[in-house]
Design a protein around this nucleic acid. Structure first.
Lengths: 254, 254
DNA sequence: GTTCCTGATATGTATATACATAATCGCGGT
DNA sequence: ACCGCGATTATGTATATACATATCAGGAAC
């Protein structure tokens, strides 16, 4: 340990020398935003402050902030500074959407109900659901929930959480509030995959949603990773008339 | 007509003075790529060549090219130059997908069939379908097509083209090849909006697709704009089991 | 002929500097 | 109290410059 390699590097620890400085600044800020440490509306340090913090030129900081602005995470205002934006309907599909917000946007009262909660050792099927990545071995938490808009069921949520990635979830009771918003606050996710498809409701889902068996449904599945590691898989099933996914796109920003 | 408004503008034509130089370079290159003028594999001019062409510093050109690389449109290789990338499965939903390619990826022979083609003055409904924007007034072309995978119908296409935006479409016969690929080659699109939803097949669509009436379908609608101007609206209807939309996402690039 | 080295080249990152622009603050005048 | 105007401030864009790094081409050495 007291030796050759150690002496070359003098970094504080945990700093990846391979990534560029502006990329490191960008990642630092992005992580603080997606983790919720800096909430929407929070004023990000001024360029000249970050310049001092990272001991670099303003151009370097500017490059990082400009990219964050372009990707929609922050908003920059002259003379005022840069602010964390509230999650816009921006990229839509891509957004980790919050069903409560979705329901309330329709002007209906939101209610959440936990139907089942199971803790078990991950089966092969569970591992497939969570997707590729290391350390999926351990235990998982399986949840079935129902989201209501007014008195009517709005969507069924079927979720799997990797306790290897989120050990705190084992102690949580998801009786009052949905696991989605809690997870977002808990784990800074770094990648997500969405699959959107249509299907006929099976008899169980149909019963939960108050539909005829075989009624058309929209199914949105999402896998989430945090630093290459699978965190959760969730499947939302909506009655066909209740929901649509909207995505706006301009090739390379605009 | 020879009057007030016309006199205010004195630009050479089409050059927007409000956008910055690097943004203009970015747009120019992007347009040439999405229009197909520069095909995948094409070597984009070197930075020093663009520097000369736009009479600016290398940093400015570099900013434009770096962003295009980050958004995945081009690939940059040291010492070799920058190249147009082949459309990756990248942004998925957002991608203008080609059904022929989709079908052939399944290993099935592709066949296309034109069911109906109508030219008419744009109705109110047509204008709504095309979306907001100027000059939607004129004539439109309405098309109904069927795409086959092997012997079985794969999806129904219901398309509206604004002849104000694409006058050449009036003279086209879409008997042999689908309007989608042709349009992409014709009009450099600058923005697109997708709506994805599920629905029960109406009797007509069900008949076309060989389904029972009321069978669940996945519907993908897309509006496309070229420079703020509506170009086309298209609705693809797939049997529920035939298709899913996949989107991968990393907040602000990665 | 093969291996290795060297130089040329294009991109990648960072710096200091400059000026433009938008928004805000505060001062002074009416 | 209100209005207007200039000063201040943070961001937006562009420049010239510098050095790092990956990669390729061509030649030297074996």
């Amino acid at each position: 340990m007291p030796d050759s390699i150690a002496e070359v590097v003098e970094e504080p620890v945990g700093v990846d020398a391979s990534t560029s400085l502006y990329q490191r600044i960008l990642n630092d800020i992005r992580d603080r935003i997606v983790s919720g440490e800096w909430e929407p509306g929070y004023r990000i340090p001024f360029e000249h402050e970050l310049t001092a913090e990272y001991d670099c030129s303003r151009m370097t900081v500017n490059k990082a902030l400009s990219q964050l602005a372009k990707s929609g995470l922050i908003e920059r205002r002259r003379r005022s500074g840069s602010f964390v934006r509230r999650p816009q309907s921006q990229a839509a599909v891509l957004e980790i959407h919050d069903i409560r917000i979705e329901v309330e946007a329709l002007g209906l009262p939101y209610r959440y109900e936990l139907m089942a909660q199971t803790k078990r050792r991950a089966t092969t099927v569970d591992r497939e659901r969570l997707g590729p990545g290391p350390s999926v071995a351990g235990q998982v938490l399986a949840l079935q929930c129902l989201h209501y808009a007014g008195v009517r069921p709005f969507c069924v949520e079927d979720r799997l959480i990797s306790l290897a990635a989120v050990p705190e979830a084992a102690d949580q009771e998801f009786l009052k509030s949905a696991p989605g918003p809690w997870l977002i606050g808990q784990v800074p996710w770094s990648a997500a995959e969405h699959v959107i498809r249509a299907a006929a409701a099976d008899s169980e889902t149909a019963a939960d949603l108050g539909l005829a068996s075989g009624a058309p449904c929209l199914i949105i599945e999402r896998r989430t990773w945090s630093a290459e590691r699978p965190v959760t898989h969730v499947r939302f099933t909506y009655p066909a008339n209740a929901h649509a996914v909207v995505a706006r796109f301009t090739p390379s920003d605009s």
